[in-house]
Structure formats: structure tokens, C-alpha cells
Amino acid sequence: MQVARAAPVLGLVFLLLLPVFARYNDYVLQVFTHALLLATLALAWNILGVSGSISLGHAAFFGAGAYTSALLSLDLGVSPWATIPLGGVLAAGIAAIMGLFCLRLRGAYFALATLAFVEIPKVITDNWDGLTRGSLGLVGLPGLPSLRLGSYHFDISGSLAGSYYFVLGYGLVLLLLVTLMFRSNLGLALQAIREEEIAAEAVGIQVQRYRLLSLLLSAFFTGITGACYGHLIRYIEPGLVYGLHFSAMPMIFAICGGRFTILGPALAALVLYPVDQFIFHPLLPAGHEFLYGAVIILAILFMPSGVWGQLRKGHFVSIKTGSIE
């Protein structure tokens, strides 16, 4: 329990101070920036995950968000600050179509349908050369404009630390939103649906409406992350942003971290990705990602509620208990 109390605070202090320590080490900052992005993906994935549905197709939302924002800012010259939310909206639109076909399904069959669904936006993006420039991808995406607060000037795209703090800030905002959502009656409904759908319906929860809502919200924030990713990396292509990587990673982090908790998915991303990059990548340049396969197998066999869920045994998301899990 004490670990569970202290770890988030220590983690936050570490993340806030990291650029100070790592000032001369670009690689460390890049890795943690990407880890933070993956953490936001895991948080967003778990908005759906908490309702009991496992998606293997979130790359569809990630890619849709990335492409929407990239094309609008490239072709129309609109500021990324305006196009990023639109990326989220289009991702939610795609989720609505997905929901139409997939939300009648439960459990394994929902997961299989989402796995197949990614192919649709991917193949369309790949082939609609006139709009998306096809499999060549998009280069030279505009970076994120710097933010001005009075005389203070916050440069995002110009420096690694700027990008890092931007993603950290976005991650914290998303964490706050997810906490509010899970603690609200929406979160209550989603958990009830996950545990006992029939009983949930019997107490008056409109099951399908809430499942759709959680899918849309999850897709919206995944799309926002995808859009930010594009403007940070400045280059996207269908195989990359619709790739299995962005479907698999949030699922793996959420399940290993604990999909019945708020923080677990994000913590898993912030621990596993740096471990992969700093330890396994140098040892095994080809094949280091076996780590993710290994941890998900171990988690599903020995710790189905995830590491963070195990540490907080019996204290999953609750409207009553005070602390953030």
C-alpha cells in the first residue's frame, strides 16, 4: 500500500525534473517523450478497456487523428492547434462506424473485429493517393507553434525539452480527465457493465449507449495523441501510424499495468518502454520487442489484474476512496 501511495508522487517528481538531469542526453529525452505518448495512448485505450472490451484496433484512431491533422495543416495551412482536435473528432467518427458493426459483439469477438477493422482506414489511406499521397506518406509536417503567455515564450518544436514538457502536460491533463471520468457516474456505469452486464441493465444502465460513449471518448483521445505524434515527428506514413505497434502497445500497457485502475496503464508505459529502450535495445538490436510479448503472456497467466491492480488489491477505481489509483 505504501508503494502504491508513494510511487505516483515520486514518479511525477522524476518526470518533472528529468529534462534538468538529462539536459545533455537527447536520447534519454526522446525515449521518455515517446514513453509519455504511449502512456497517453494507454490511458485513452483504457477508457474503453474499463468497460471490459479489449480493442486490438486502436491504431485506426491513432492513424486517423494523425492523418486528419497533418493534411489539414499541410494543405490548408491551418494551425496545428486547430487541427489536432479535429483529428480527435475524425477518430471518434471512425469509432462511430466501428461501433455500428462491432459493439454488438462481446469479448473475444469484439477483439477480433477491431483487429480486422484497422485494415479499412489503413487501406483507404494507402490508396487514396489524391488526398493522402498514398503509401509515400507525408513529410514536412508543421511543428507545434510555440505558446506565448505574456512575455513568456514556450517553445515546443524547437527543443527536445519543449516537446517533452508539452507531452507531459498533455498526459497530465488526460490523466485528470480520465480520473474524473472514472470517478463519475460514467465510470461507475462502465465498470458495472464490465462486471455484470445483465445486472447493470437491470438497475437501469443503458448498456449499449455507455459502451458507445466509452468507445468514442477512447477514440477521440487516441486521435488527439496521433495528431500530436505527427506534429512532433513531422513525418507520417500509413504503415507507421496504422501499424500494429499503435494497436498493440496501449493494450499491452493497460493489461500489464492494470486495466481496472486509472494509473496502471500509464505507469506500465513509463516503465516498460524505457526498460525496452535502455536495456533490451542495446543488448538485442533485432528482436528486443520480445519483451512486450513476454510481459503480456506473464500478465495474463499470473496477474490478470495487472501489476498496479495487484498492488492496490481491492482498491480499484472507486467513487469513495480518496486517492488516485
Partner: peptide, 26 residues
């Protein structure tokens, strides 16, 4: 694997797939 078997098998074998992909890459 524990219940729900179908869903858990999907998640686990997804991990196995990643494991094998990386083994073959190596």
C-alpha cells in the same frame, strides 16, 4: 489460461505472436 478463455487466449497468443516475430527477426 483462466476464464474467459476465448478472450484471454486472444490476449495471450497476441503476446506469443510478438515473441515469435521478434525471435524470427533475430
Amino acid at each position: 489460461l483462466r476464464e474467459p478463455l476465448e478472450l484471454n487466449s486472444i490476449v495471450m497468443s497476441f503476446g506469443v505472436a510478438i515473441l515469435l516475430q521478434n525471435g524470427m527477426l533475430f
